[in-house]
Structure formats: structure tokens, C-alpha cells
């Protein structure tokens, strides 16, 4: 951590979702919305966070607490109603090259082969085909999909599809990796495998800054250096827990230690108190 300046700053951010709701009257069901009622939903309330270069941060919290909202604001996919998100010192006004994003439902293009999915970022930047394919191949190998370059996403299992998603993000060479429940759509066994795989892949890639959202307490402890616990809606930062394990310690054996169990219990109490019925 040569550079201690904050990479990502979330500065007193509040986000309100507004949904138009058809008036709930007999006629309202048949008439077009003449006077729509607007429902306001405060998803995130005055959240502040600082993420330092090289940090690996997990955000956990009950369903609907706005953890994904915070992550999407970091990537510039949505914008706060008040407050500001800054990356590398400048306000986030839209998606930017420093950030890569992993989607829970993979977001692969079904009409593109694995290699064309992985090379998507460089392709948009106009990188010539052979150069971007070389880059893509490197990352396809890294995520363990050698031999599947010309397969289509629907021919792959869920775990393999998210490997493609990871390779695609890496091919864009981001400084910051944002992951929205990256393994949330996978079965428990595949998820565990992918967690160890992600540790291996990120170790091979060198230390980027990562932020991920998860429901899985084990995943948070296994991967992150810091776990941010958010309260129930409207989401606030409730607690930040440091995870004292070194990178090299993170493996199968860690799951059995009493320290791990204690941390998990601690996180569980933190999240459970917030979980609505």
C-alpha cells in the first residue's frame, strides 16, 4: 500500500428511488395516469465510506438495504440525490475506465463467443482484433477456461459463465473492481469453488482495489480485508469490521479456525439485528 490516499470516497450520499404508481381507484385502473402518485423510497441515507488503494472491501446487510445501490453509484450507473462519490479524487459522473463491474446475472452477450465477450472492453476502445484476442486469451487462461474460447455462453455452466464475466472485467484492466453479488446466482458448492478461484485470480493479477456486495458471510470474511455492515432500509453504515487474515492465509483451512467462526458470529449478529421479517 504505497499510496494511502483514498481511492474511492463515498461522501454523505443519499439515494431516493421514485416510482410512479397508478392511482389505486376503480377508474384509475382503466384510465391512463393523469395524476400519478409518486412513491418515494429512501434506499441509502447519508452513507460515507473511504476505500484505500489495495483494499478489498465487502458490503453486507439485510435485503434491500441499498448495498447494491452504493456499489452502482461507485460505478456511475446511478447517481446520488445528495452527497458525492469520488474516484481517484474526482466526482463520478458516469462509468469510467478505472472501474470494472461484475454483474450478479453475469451480463454476458449470448450472441458472442467466450473470447468475444472477454474482448468486449478492448473492442469498444478500438483495439485491433489480434491484440485484444491475445489479451482475452491471457485472461481466459487465468480464469481456467482454456479451450472454451469459441463456446457460446449458453453452452457453459453458471460458474463458467461468471468466470467469463471475471475475465471480461480483467481484460479491461481496471484499477478498481466492483462486484455485485458475483456468485449470488450460483449453487452453494460452485460458489465456494469460485470464492477460492477469485482469491487465486486476484493474487495472480496483483492487488487492485475491490469492493463487492454479498449476502454470504463466509464469502465476506474469506475475501475481504474490511467488511462494511449496513443497516436495514434506509441503508446506513452500521459498522466496519476489520478482517485480520493475511492474503496467504486465505484458503480452505481458514474456514475451520475459531477466529473465522468468531468473525462470522459477529457479522451474523450485526446483520441479523437488521434483517426484517
Amino acid at each position: 500500500m504505497s499510496d494511502p490516499s483514498p481511492k474511492i470516497v463515498v461522501d454523505h450520499v443519499t439515494k431516493i428511488y421514485r416510482t410512479r404508481k397508478r392511482r389505486d381507484t376503480f377508474l384509475g385502473r382503466f384510465l391512463p395516469d393523469l395524476r400519478p402518485t409518486i412513491r418515494e423510497l429512501k434506499a441509502v441515507d447519508d452513507v460515507s465510506l473511504e476505500i484505500t488503494t489495495g483494499d478489498f472491501v465487502a458490503i453486507i446487510g439485510p435485503s434491500g438495504c441499498g448495498k447494491t445501490t452504493v456499489l452502482r453509484m461507485m460505478d456511475g450507473l446511478i447517481f446520488p440525490d445528495s452527497g458525492e462519490v469520488r474516484v481517484n479524487g474526482t466526482p463520478v459522473l458516469g462509468p469510467r475506465a478505472e472501474c470494472g463491474f461484475i454483474f450478479q446475472d453475469f451480463g454476458l452477450y449470448p450472441w458472442r463467443t467466450v473470447i468475444d465477450n472477454v474482448a468486449f472492453g478492448p473492442e469498444l476502445r478500438g483495439v485491433p482484433r489480434n491484440v485484444r484476442y491475445e489479451l482475452a486469451r491471457k485472461h481466459i487462461d487465468l480464469v481456467g477456461l482454456k479451450g472454451f474460447e469459441t463456446s457460446f455462453p449458453h453452452q457453459l455452466s453458471g460458474g463458467m459463465q461468471q468466470r467469463v464475466g471475471i475475465a471480461r472485467m480483467l481484460s479491461a484492466e481496471p484499477e478498481i473492481m466492483l462486484m455485485d453479488e458475483p456468485f449470488g446466482a450460483l449453487d452453494a458448492l460452485t460458489r465456494r469453488t469460485m470464492q477460492f478461484e477469485l482469491i487465486r485470480i486476484l493474487a495472480a493479477e496483483g492487488s487492485a482495489t475491490s469492493v463487492f456486495v454479498t449476502h454470504d458471510l463466509d464469502e465476506a470474511i474469506l475475501l475481504a480485508d474490511k467488511v462494511v455492515i449496513m443497516s436495514a432500509r434506509p441503508g446506513r453504515v452500521k459498522e466496519i469490521v476489520n478482517i485480520p487474515f493475511a492474503r496467504s492465509e486465505r484458503g480452505e483451512a481458514l474456514l475451520e479456525t475459531s477466529m473465522f467462526a468468531e468473525l462470522r458470529h459477529h457479522l451474523w449478529l450485526g446483520v441479523h439485528a437488521e434483517q426484517p421479517l
Partner: peptide, 16 residues
């Protein structure tokens, strides 16, 4: 939406 958002994440232009 996800497919469009993915492209936005990689800084796609409207045309792209």
C-alpha cells in the same frame, strides 16, 4: 437492462 449496463460500464457510446 443488464446488457446495456455492461456496455455502459465499458464506456460504450450510444452508437456502440
Amino acid at each position: 437492462t443488464t446488457l446495456v449496463e455492461v456496455a455502459k460500464t465499458y464506456l460504450a457510446t450510444e452508437r456502440q
